[in-house]
Design a protein around this nucleic acid. Structure first.
Length: 757
DNA sequence: ATAGGGTTAG
């Protein structure tokens, strides 16, 4: 229908309530909607209607579209199709049955010359059922155009199918129609308005309908609470719950489920217990959903004992009950217990799988997360965007770029919802896998971004050595009026550290409090110590520690210790190490760092003392470990490890490399080898470092031009760093190594960190 | 012959 015609219709129809401005929205909807205009089929009723026709009873048993089509064709043969009762039955089946076909419904509807109110409403309900609200609206407009007045069933049916977007687009205008039609005091209509408004976040409008309602019932209250839950204003939900009692409204199990959900999000155990008492007093009928909500509340509050108590006493459990238990244990870090329940589940859906996968991710057991994801796929359970976020997080930690890329393709191909969480996870994955360009590409394409998006991008640029761009991003973020938080500032300060921008870092640190009212926490002080220390301002770094308003933790001292080692200040290093060991006597890394430093200063006597201390105290060094992903498989190497199936080839490649590199002027840098042994033995220790094994494996397992990406759990050693630079030049290969804190992009013989790390 | 509100995972 041409817009002008609709415009006229709306203007002159008795139902035209909207101003011409607001009706343009609905007009636009109409042109968008995919429903073809109704054709008026001339119809002559040739057969008398028989209401008691036995054919009609056949419709009662209809269970499928195929059967319905058979019945339909029979009615055509007997001339019954023009019987309004038959028409109603056919349309109603298509609109209501789970297998019902709305196109078929529309086709039959279009043959009805003057559809009854019932048929109009049924059609609208049908479009809501299949979640195509545009067609519902289009149907509604068609009604108005044909001067059919909606009744009090029409609006609930129509609004029920609304999505956020369409509610924002024409919710208010339809509300106007409701008032003009005089249905605003119908409690069903009101309730659907409250729901519609809370769906699209117009909570004040919802509240307005609620407050002015003369006829509100328990469902109105519930819908309102649901609205507050949706926008995470759980305190308002609680308030309404208490007000219900004052107003003498009898709460239903739905009310309790809603309030328990709020308790769970707030982790409000006391309120949760109060609701549980209410249930125990049999004030409402117990049902499955309510029990599930109780499990969830107790689990969220960390009371798995009470959650299990409910779970074990349930007569019937569904997949949600089981998942709530699995998720509860997973969130508590008890991932093995979670797995025990997961394995016992009679059936699992995509939420159960995702909860379990995410449990592994939360406790940094990424390889198990990936293994479970593979199992999920062989079980033919379709993952959704939540699953994708978990897997992308695992990829980010493992540096598994290939799998990450595969997930990206999977999302696009399978039309998985690409929301802001997914975008953020993709940015994180790409930048933690060392591909900051692709991270930026995702950033630019995201239709909606939030604080986390900016922060992920700032951190990503910073750790990849693009400090200045990270700060530009920060400026842009502020320009976009997005308030930074503590994490954003961690990213900003790290960016300064990795680029050595000391003065800028100092200024930004000061701006936290002055510009944004964020009190620096211990991590921020750690960043400052790191920033100053790495740049060689060891005394100033120490001053920062002495003057910080809270007790410095081992990370803060660790930053100073690291700086002391780089700048070879043995005295301060000893002091810092002592501080850390007071806090964490078992911290193996500190002993190792001290050893490295004594080795670098040729203080072998001290080194031996520390070694002895380690032996006496039973302290183990964290073994260096490097990961490399090849054809979607993550390979793990530890120093000197001969267990890889291709070990022989790897070691002979290493020999070859050593010869090639020495020819090009490479000499092993043994300054950090904390072994008081001959030069030759030091070299052979260096030569077995895990990152070298991984790089050699990368060279033999991939074709020329393929970037080698390695993730190391510790800081990269000086010699490996040197060697990687030469390899990048001699073999013309890009190498990206992610170490404990940052990235090293080796290209044409130099590193993005500019040897500053 | 036609209605409304709910639980599990980032």
């Amino acid at each position: 229908m041409p817009p002008s015609l609709l415009h006229k219709t709306l203007l002159y129809s008795p139902l035209t309530l909207s101003t011409s401005r607001s009706s343009t929205t609905l007009m636009k909807m109409m042109t968008m909607a995919s429903v073809s205009p109704t054709h008026f089929t001339p119809h002559t009723l040739t057969q008398p209607h028989s209401l008691e026709n036995p054919q009609l009873s056949l419709f009662d048993n209809c269970k499928s579209m195929d059967y319905l089509k058979q019945l339909h064709s029979q009615t055509i043969k007997t001339g019954m199709t023009s019987n309004p009762v038959v028409q109603n039955r056919i349309v109603a089946f298509c609109c209501k049955h789970e297998s019902g076909d709305m196109n078929y419904a529309r086709h039959v509807f279009d043959t009805i010359p003057e559809p009854s109110m019932f048929v109009w409403n049924t059609m609208i309900k049908g479009y809501s059922r299949i979640k195509v609200p545009e067609n519902g609206v289009s149907m509604y407009l068609e009604m108005l155009r044909r001067n059919v007045e909606p009744d009090h069933y029409t609006f609930p049916f129509l609004l029920k199918g609304f999505t956020r977007d369409i509610a924002l687009e024409c919710g208010r205008e339809l509300h106007g129609h409701v008032v003009k039609c005089g249905f605003h005091s119908n409690v069903f209509v009101q309730n659907s308005l409250v729901n519609m408004y809370s769906l699209c976040g117009l909570i004040d409008m919802a509240r307005c309908v609620f407050d002015t309602s003369q006829t509100r019932d328990v469902v109105t209250w519930n819908a309102m609470i649901s609205g507050y839950n949706r926008i995470k204003q759980f305190d308002e939900s609680m308030k309404l719950f208490d007000e219900m009692e004052k107003n003498g409204v009898l709460r239903t199990s739905v009310t309790l489920v809603l309030v328990l959900s709020a308790c769970s999000k707030l982790k409000d155990l006391n309120m949760g217990k109060r609701v549980h008492e209410y249930v125990k007093e049999c004030k409402v009928e117990d049902d499955l959903r309510l029990e599930n909500a109780l499990i969830d509340m107790y689990a969220a509050c960390g009371r798995m004992d009470l959650a299990l108590g409910i779970f074990q006493n349930m007569k019937t459990r569904d997949v949600i009950s089981w998942t709530a238990i699995v998720a509860g244990f997973a969130n508590a870090g008890e991932v093995d217990l979670a797995r025990k329940y997961f394995d016992q589940m009679p059936e699992r859906d995509y939420v159960s799988w995702t909860a379990m996968i995410d449990g592994y991710v939360r406790v940094n057991r990424f390889k198990e997360a990936l293994a479970l994801f593979r199992k999920m796929q062989t079980s033919n359970i379709r993952p959704d965007e939540f699953t994708m976020v978990s897997i992308l997080t695992a990829c980010a930690h493992l540096g598994a770029l290939e799998l990450g890329e595969w997930i990206k393709t999977y999302i696009d191909k399978n039309k998985i919802k690409n929301d802001v969480y997914v975008g953020n996870a993709l940015i994180d994955m790409y930048s933690k896998c060392g591909n900051v360009e692709k991270a930026q590409r995702i950033f630019k394409k995201m239709p909606r971004i939030d604080k986390f998006t900016w922060t992920a991008m700032i951190v990503g640029l910073g750790i990849n050595g693009h400090g200045e761009e990270a700060l530009d991003m920060f400026t842009e973020m502020l320009k976009a009026s997005i308030a930074p938080d503590e994490i954003t500032y961690i990213g900003v300060l790290c960016a300064c550290t990795h680029t050595g921008m000391v003065d800028v870092g100092r200024k930004l640190f000061a701006s936290m409090t002055t510009q944004h009212g964020i009190e620096p926490n211990v991590a921020h002080y750690g960043c400052m110590v790191d920033l100053l220390g790495r740049a060689g301002h060891l005394k100033e770094a120490h001053e920062v520690i002495k003057n910080m308003p809270m007790k410095p933790n081992s990370t803060v001292w660790g930053a100073l210790l690291g700086a002391c080692r780089v700048h070879k200040d043995a005295e301060m290093a000893e002091m810092a190490a002592k501080q850390i060991l007071e806090l964490e006597p078992e911290n193996g890394a500190v002993y190792v760092l001290l050893c490295n430093m004594y080795a670098a200063c040729d203080r072998w006597e001290n080194l031996r003392e520390v070694r002895q201390m380690m032996i006496d105290r039973g302290i183990k060094k964290t073994p260096g470990c490097s990961l490399i992903e090849m054809n979607g498989i993550v390979h793990e190497f530890v120093a000197g490890d001969p267990s890889h199936p291709k070990s022989e080839e790897i070691y002979s490649k290493l020999d070859e490399m050593k010869t090639d590199l020495k020819f090009a002027g490479y000499s092993p840098d043994t300054s950090e080898v904390s072994l008081d042994v001959g030069e030759e033995e030091k070299e052979s220790a260096l030569y077995r470092h895990s990152e070298k094994l991984a790089i050699a494996f990368g060279l033999i397992s991939s074709g020329p031009g393929v970037t080698i990406r390695v993730v190391k759990n510790l800081r990269m050693c000086v010699d490996c760093h040197h060697m990687a630079k030469l390899v990048s030049k001699m073999y013309n290969r890009e190498i990206v190594v992610r170490d404990k804190t940052r990235f090293h992009h080796f290209r044409h013989g130099s590193c993005s960190c500019k040897d500053f790390w």
